[in-house]
Computed example of a mutant assay.
Amino acid sequence: MTGPDSAGPAPRFDILLPYYGDVAQMKDAVHSVLAQSGEDWRLTVVDDGQEPSVPGWFDELADPRVRYFRNERNLGVTGNFNRCLELATGEYLVMMGCDDLMHPNYLDVVRRAVDAHAGVGMVQPGVKVIDSAGEPTDTLADSVKRKLYAPKEPGPSLLGGEELAASLLRGNWLYFPSICWRSDAVKPIGFRADLGVIQDLALVMDLLVAGEQLALEPEVCFSYRRHAESESSAKAFTGARFAEARRFFLETADRLDGLGWSQAAKAARHHFSTRLHALTLVPAALRLGHRDGARTLAGFALGPARRA
């Protein structure tokens, strides 16, 4: 560990950076956090990799606002998310992507939201999407999010309950790494260990069922990095992640039916946007010779929404 002792006073905002991967992009992410205003925040980096130069870089950084931890063993994505939650002691937390960027106004926007909506569970600020080179981009996924699923209100707003649950289950328009969360709402729930891809939406559903609300602040203050899906990766076309998604959506539909949230349950059961995503991968799977994967993807996309 490097940085200030964890026994010191808790910040208002814990910015958590679960790290694995590109060193240069991680450094850019850290510098973007260090550009934030105020003295009510702390950055905690939890390193789940083995890059030899990283611990020394944080030693040289020697910034009292930064804590650095390296896991003794690889915990994986969800495990490292939960390790970050364990280390958070502030009133609010952000689980930032290690290749994303905060704009200098990020905490100003978030402070405005939590001050305007005391006790709000989540804040979704305005986001700009960038590509692997850091240039602005507008992918099909982001265009669909913006045009079909995201709320059309031009100003700040407060959302929650079945209406928000149904909206997100039709198409998850949130940008998870940019969200600010109220710590005492999130920490008791955590991230489900049985989910490796859709754990962020699962957390949001748990919070909405518990009565939490989401504040929207449209001012852009965060850059979310969207990497192109690698066509050389067979894993992208096995359909395994869609099997996980189907299980989550059908479990969620049953749960919401039990609560009387019939519209949200219907949205979960049909999960159109996820099925459409699977369908868009079929041509590339066939082109690259992944015929079994193509059949799996097509079955997910075009098969019955309900359990057999």
Rank of each mutant, 00 (worst) to 15 (best):
E72S: 14
E72D: 15
V77G: 01
V77Y: 10
T78W: 05
G79R: 07
N80D: 06
R83E: 15
C84G: 03
C84M: 06
T89N: 04
T89I: 03
G90V: 02
E91H: 03
L93M: 10
L93N: 00
V94L: 08
M95Q: 10
M96K: 04
G97N: 14
C98I: 04
L101D: 01
Y106G: 00
V109F: 04
D115Q: 13
A116T: 15
A116N: 04
H117E: 15
A118P: 06
V120M: 04
G126F: 08
K128V: 13
D131G: 15
S132G: 09
S132C: 04
A133V: 11
E135G: 11
T137Y: 09
D138Q: 12
T139A: 10
T139G: 10
L140Y: 11
A141W: 07
D142H: 15
S143F: 14
S143A: 14
K145M: 14
K145Y: 06
L148V: 15
Y149H: 14
A150S: 15
E153V: 15
P154L: 05
G160T: 04
A165R: 00
A166Q: 13
A166Y: 11
L168A: 07
L174F: 08
Y175T: 08
Y175Q: 05
P177L: 07
S178P: 03
W181E: 00
W181A: 00
R182L: 00
V186I: 08
V186M: 02
P188C: 13
I189F: 03
R192E: 10
A193Y: 06
D194G: 11
D194T: 15
V197N: 12
V197G: 01
V197W: 14
Q199H: 14
D200Y: 03
A202F: 06
A202Q: 07
D206V: 04
L208I: 03
